[in-house]
Simulated assay, not measured.
Amino acid sequence: MVEAAILKFEGEADMVRIQYALNKHKEWCLGDGMYGDGPNFHWDYYNVFVIHPMLLGIWNVLISKKETLKSWRYKDVTSEYNQALNKAKSYAGIQEKLISPEGTYPPIGRSLTYRFGAFQALSQMAMFEKLPSQIEPSQVRSALKAVIKKHLETKNMFDENGWLTIGFYGH
C-alpha cells in the first residue's frame, strides 16, 4: 500500500515490492475469495479489512498508472484487477451469509475486537455496486443495519466517556 501510494502521488515506486506483495497474495489465495494470512489459513476477519480492500486499492492505482508501467510484468492490469474484484465479490457473498436475521455473526479469529470493521469487504462491494448477482443491495443494507443495531444496543459497548470498549459484544 505504501508503494502504491508513492506511485499514485509521485508517479514512481519500487515496482518489485508491489509485484512481490501481489505474487504472495496469489500464492495465499485459497479459493472463494479466501486468503491465508501468510501460507497458512486462519479463519478470521483479516480478509475483510486488510486483504481485499488493499488488493483492490493497489490494483486501482496500477490501472490509473498503466501507461507508465509499460515494461512491468503485469501487462494487463485490468484483467488482474478483475480477478481480484471477482475474489472480493465471492468473499462478500460468504460474508452476507454469515449475518443472522438478528444481526449476529460468528465470533471467529484473532480480530474480534474490530467488530465495526468485520463487514468492510461486503460494504465495499455494495458501495462499488459489485455485489454477487444473487445478493441484492437491500439485503446488504438490512443485514448491516441489523449488525450495527445489535452492537449498539448492548450494554458495555461504550465506556462512561463514550469511548468504544475493547471486546466483541460489549466489553
Rank of each mutant, 00 (worst) to 15 (best):
M125D: 03
I148L: 03
R17I: 13
I135D: 12
I148T: 14
N60Q: 15
N82V: 04
S142H: 07
V147P: 01
M127V: 12
P39S: 05
D44H: 06
S79G: 00
P107C: 11
Y45D: 13
N47Y: 06
E102C: 00
S111I: 05
N47G: 13
H25K: 07
Q19E: 15
N86I: 00
L144W: 04
E129M: 07
A84R: 07
I148R: 09
L122G: 02
N60S: 14
E96R: 11
N40E: 11
K89S: 14
L131C: 03
S100V: 04
N47P: 10
L69W: 09
T68L: 07
W59D: 00
Q124S: 11
I99R: 08
A92I: 01
D37R: 12
P132E: 15
P101V: 04
L22W: 06
L122H: 10
G117F: 14
H52N: 04
M127E: 05
K130H: 11
A88G: 11
L69S: 07
S100A: 05
A118K: 02
D32R: 00
E80D: 11
G36Y: 04
L144K: 00
A92F: 00
R141L: 02
V48N: 10
C29E: 12
S90N: 14
K65Y: 07
I18D: 01
F41C: 05
K97T: 14
N47W: 01
P106N: 01
N60H: 15
K89Q: 15
Y45A: 11
R17G: 04
L30E: 10
K65L: 03
G57N: 03
S138R: 12
K145H: 14
P39E: 09
S142N: 13
T104S: 13
M125R: 00
W43H: 04
F116G: 03
V50D: 15
V140K: 05
C29Q: 02
Q19D: 13
Q124T: 09
A88V: 09
A118L: 07
V61T: 11
K130A: 12
S123P: 00
I99W: 01
D14L: 10
